[in-house]
Design a protein around this nucleic acid. Structure first.
Length: 560
DNA sequence: CAACAGACTTGGAATAATTTTT
DNA sequence: AAAAATTATTCCAAGTCTGTTG
């Protein structure tokens, strides 16, 4: 895994690729698909029609009922209209997209009903595209590219209460694209009749292609797949940093506890914030530009309105009640007993403030991270999340794994350990739409299995009785086979019950993010080796590719 | 040190593919 | 063979953090 170390900041020596794949051009609707304005058929210009189809495709989505979404969409749509269209179409509520919407639904349906041959053809075309554009050469390796297809135009779907939802995400053209590759590589050619915005040769960055997106004005990149050397090494590094934190975390904890008593307000705020980041795995909380994004916060950007102080609550002293929207507008709600000193400090920080004032008015992520840098090289706020996630997994696995359990039960223990981490990191999901039904199905399967088991047991009993009377070889054999049948069914039942428990507990928890981004994979690999669990039970193919370095590296005695 | 650009990681939902059930 | 359920993959938004500039 370590081939040659590059000097500081150099990411590669050679980089060759084919450039991005652009979104397919817009195909106008067939003549018979109509758009109606104010009850009357109206033929739209191609540009206006294209944007209208974006809306039509989302018609069933809740987004299209939201005031802001509609307002933003309508404003941007009008920009694409001809002056005639502009003067006719003055109200979105008079627009009828239902026919268009039906057409797209029919298309989706038709795609599902396609013959084997047609599906095969599409598959082959995708494979061809992947083969040609999906790989690059970085130094001596052929590597998978993560997102070689450029995002198609559409309507921006912000998450939560986003002020820009519904705005038109414009089509990206070659003229928007910056290509990054090495000078001595075969430089990708733009589509016929087009030019790249720029071709550069910057080996201090890892991206192959970039462009500026029009909603936030931020830069988007095409980068390598997680299975690539460059991503894998970075991932490994991340966990090594977290392991270094493990060695000095006690010292740091003592330090911030001391700082709770500091004479300097700034130091106290820093120490309380760090306590939250450490204890509750909160994110750092950078400032955000107001009005540009949904109103969400992290630790440093918490406002007074986001916490409530309870000197006593449900028999516990000094309870802080958190209620705020974090990343992706996921709600963080938690009641946490804290130390008296923290509580008193919080009271102090909140004195004479309005609800919308910053809780930590003397602090931001830059100040906090500078301090952390002094405590340990490479330490930033997010390392605490990685550290606490990984150490929790390791400790939970130790606690929950029962050596006598069979494999499905051990995997349940693994998932529970994973779940403990997801809860710590507040990784939530909307319960799947079919959750209730799926649980009921599973329950009826369990009931059926129970009956099957009862039957098998009865049969075993009568076979035994029969054998006692007849005392011949044949009936003895029957008993044996009946016994085996009972055992097999018991095992199946147990498996189903484990599955039901796992699913129920997982209703609102998303395990993916922690598994992919926070848990040192070597912990899982070691656990699998120790208990003889096939690694495929824990990581699917993609995950095994991403964590190839860890699967290679970790032995059963690995300690995070 | 504040504002901003840039680069890279992290995040849940949507969609596609695969497996299981009917 | 079709439909339903489940799992894997893709999508692309939204964070963190660094470096530069004024």
């Amino acid at each position: 895994w370590e081939e040659e170390r590059y000097p500081e900041g150099i990411k590669w020596k050679f980089l060759e690729h084919k450039g991005p794949v652009f979104a397919p051009p817009y195909e106008p609707l067939p003549e018979n698909v109509k758009f109606y304005y104010d009850g009357k058929v109206m033929k739209l210009s191609t540009k206006a029609e294209e944007v209208a189809t974006f809306f039509a495709k989302m018609l069933d989505h809740e987004y299209t009922t939201k005031e802001i979404f509609r307002k933003n969409f309508f404003k941007d749509w009008r920009k694409e209209m001809t002056s005639e269209e502009k003067s006719t179409i003055t109200s979105l509520s008079k627009c009828d997209f239902t026919h268009m919407s039906q057409y797209f639904k029919a298309q989706t349906e038709a795609r599902k009903q396609m013959s084997k041959e047609e599906k095969q053809k599409i598959k082959e075309e995708n494979e061809r595209l992947l083969k040609e554009y999906g790989y690059c050469v970085m130094d001596n390796h052929k590597e998978r590219i993560a997102n070689f297809k450029i995002e198609p135009p559409g309507l921006f779907r912000g998450r939560g209460n986003h002020p820009k939802m519904g705005m038109l995400k414009r089509r990206i053209m070659p003229e928007d694209i910056i290509i990054n590759c090495s000078k001595d590589s075969k430089i990708p050619s733009p589509p016929p009749g087009h030019k790249w915005k720029e071709v550069r040769h910057d080996n201090k960055v890892t991206w192959l292609v970039s462009w500026t997106e029009n909603i936030q004005g931020s830069i988007k990149y095409i980068m390598l797949n997680p299975s690539s050397r460059i991503k894998g090494e970075k991932d490994w590094q991340k966990y090594e940093t977290a392991r270094r934190l493990k060695k000095c975390v006690d010292k740091i904890r003592n330090q911030y506890r001391e700082d709770w008593k500091s004479k300097e307000m700034k130091v106290r705020q820093r120490a309380v914030a760090l306590y939250f980041i450490d204890k509750l795995a909160l994110r750092a909380g950078n400032e955000k530009e107001e009005g540009e994004t949904a109103d969400t916060v992290g630790c440093c950007s918490l406002r007074v309105e986001h916490i409530k102080l309870h000197p006593e609550l449900d028999g516990q002293e000094y309870v802080v009640e958190f209620d705020f929207l974090g990343k992706d507008s996921i709600r963080y709600y938690n009641k946490v007993p804290v130390e008296k000193r923290v509580f008193k400090n919080l009271q102090l920080f909140m004195e004479n403030k309005q609800p919308e004032d910053d809780l930590f008015d003397r602090l931001n992520t830059s100040i906090l991270n500078k301090h952390l840098q002094d405590l340990m090289e490479g330490l930033t706020a997010k390392v605490f999340r990685t550290y606490n996630a990984s150490i929790t997994l390791q400790q939970q696995l130790k606690e929950l794994t029962n050596p006598d359990d069979n494999i499905p039960a051990k995997i349940l223990s693994y998932n529970r350990a994973n779940r403990a981490v997801a809860i710590l990191c507040n990784h939530q999901r909307a319960p799947p739409k079919t959750f209730e039904k799926s649980m009921m199905n599973l329950q009826s399967k369990i009931d059926a299995k129970k009956e099957q088991l009862a039957d098998a047991r009865r049969e075993l009993k009568s076979a035994k009785a029969d054998a006692k009377v007849r005392r011949d070889e044949k009936s003895k054999k029957t008993v044996e086979s009946k016994k085996k049948a009972v055992q097999r069914i018991e095992e199946q039942l147990m498996k189903l019950e484990v599955q039901a428990t796992d699913r129920e507990e997982n209703k609102q928890i998303a395990l993916g993010t922690s598994k992919l981004n926070y848990l040192d994979p070597r912990i899982s690999v070691a656990w699998c080796k120790k208990w003889g669990i096939p690694i495929e039970k824990i990581y699917n193919k993609t995950q095994r590719e991403k964590f190839a370095w860890a699967i290679d590296m970790a032995e059963e005695d690995y300690e995070f």
